[in-house]
Design a protein around this nucleic acid. Sequence first.
DNA 1: TTGTTTACTTACTAATAAGTAAGTAACTTA
DNA 2: TAAGTTACTTACTTATTAGTAAGTAAACAA
Lengths: 183, 183
Amino acid sequence: MDTKEKIVETADRLVRARGYNAFSYKDISAPLSIKNAAVHYHFPAKADLGIAVVEREISGFIVKTAEWAALPEDEQIMKLFEVFERYSRDENICLVASLASDFKTLEPAMQAKVREMSDNILSWLTACLEAGRNKGLLKFTGPAATRALLIITNLQSSLLMSRIKGQVIFRQITGQLLEDLRS
Amino acid sequence: MDTKEKIVETADRLVRARGYNAFSYKDISAPLSIKNAAVHYHFPAKADLGIAVVEREISGFIVKTAEWAALPEDEQIMKLFEVFERYSRDENICLVASLASDFKTLEPAMQAKVREMSDNILSWLTACLEAGRNKGLLKFTGPAATRALLIITNLQSSLLMSRIKGQVIFRQITGQLLEDLRS
DNA sequence: TTGTTTACTTACTAATAAGTAAGTAACTTA
DNA sequence: TAAGTTACTTACTTATTAGTAAGTAAACAA
């Protein structure tokens, strides 16, 4: 992995752990044993780095969902839950929630990327829920797009609440969520 | 309203709008036409101010829920939704979500206050749901404490998502949430 | 009336932030 | 092999941050 990728990966971790406004270029350069200016070489302004982090997440999500595409829809939902469970274990929150908190302080170009990221996730989940219901694998009332919103907000905030009240919260939320989708 | 109260109120708005790590003492002193050092006079360190903001929210919540106590439980839930709707209109997020995002950067004393705040909200909602179900006013499956978690995470993240995708998201989420609680 | 407390202001400090200009060593291309 | 180009480092600037020390004017108390 080259330096540029390492920088984006480190920034990603920092955004999830501490928030976009709570990390500096020093927090990235120090663990990589490079100088602050080396980060600026690859990402002149902080917004350039922020956009790169979001773009990495967008393409990562596309790759993951493509790998899951052949699975039954209920299992695809489980895969999504597993992604969030890994964040929960590390006491990290999801990128959408972290950047939504700081949304008003972000540059317009970065706000647009965050919007793109959340649209991608919601469209995928909506399509997955719709198909799963049609096949009888999933049960829920109302429009699939609305149910997708409810589920994604549960997952996002389960990570927020897990930080405050411990990991047990995550399992409590996802456990009930799965039960609701089955009956 | 005296200066000290005005400072806490301004800080509250800033935490909800921009986040705890994205506002400075200048952002508080400037609109109140006082000097930066005046804020430090009332709140020596930023954590003291942060704790005051959370304590104000805790006592505000206790006052509000006491006022609702005589209402039927389904109407009490509606009152809670209305509180969040006001935040939604101002594109603000709730204190718990904002401070959970920055949780790892907060001082232990402030983390404890945030924990107290979220415990208060969850206990109230759990008791309200339980009583409402017993009276046949509300319908849901599983433990009331778990359902409270699901609802509060929906509300928290509805404000986050409303910022990104517009206010319509808030009504979509709360509309379905209310329908789920009635059938 | 004198002393004390309250609620500030003035004028700072030390640390850290993002960002830049100029230099350099190694690799790549014509 | 000479001339870029890439990927940095060194050394800096400017702005902002939280926080402080010392002074002051007005209210209050003995």
